[in-house]
Amino acid sequence: MNAFRLLADLTHLLSIIILLVKIRTTKSCAGISLKTQDLYVLVFISRYLDLFTRPLSLYNTPFKLVFLATSITIVYYMRYHKVVKQTYNKDSDTFKHYFLILPCAVLAFFINPKFTFIEVLWSFSIYLEAVAILPQLVLLQSSSNIDNLTGNYVFMLGAYRALYLLNWIYRFFAEDVVRWIPWIAGLVQTALYADFFYYYIKSWRNNERLKLP
């Protein structure tokens, strides 16, 4: 465990809390992509199957349970809550996210740490997480005005994986740990946020509304 890793996981948790606060307080999920949230549920389920097969960890296990519970809750709100589901931008959330699942599954089938059910699904979840934000970024580009909570949510979500990159650099030098699969996927994931980060920081510095081209 190192400070980067701890900060990364807390940032990830914070992003989810921001989203839950937004949905619960404004009773609205405007600007949030349900497809991205669906993909995150799939990411967490396929990644945390090891909850049943591996020894529980005082640190990881609570986080895994919270991530699973919150991601499922968010999808439940967006799909079934009578008020919230009316605010979902169904016609703008158009990204064909099913097209992301098959390539990740095929890639996981061929590139994984070990060809077992758990490891292949784990690899699938790593690849899927890298691209899961795409529907959300596409939705933001078509949103006329992005509310602050949504902007902060996406920013924290991108920042957490960037912090994981620092964690991996630290672990490479301090613990001589090499992990190609999460490293490359994490780089791709963070790179996808590059233009969002640029516009987010620009809008923050000029103290103006966040607007993606």
């Binding site: 990881n60 740490p113 490891e119």
Partner: peptide, 10 residues
């Protein structure tokens, strides 16, 4: 072992 390691992160 390598496999155990790949699961020590979230």
């Amino acid at each position: 072992d390598e496999i155990a390691d790949s699961h020590d992160e979230l």
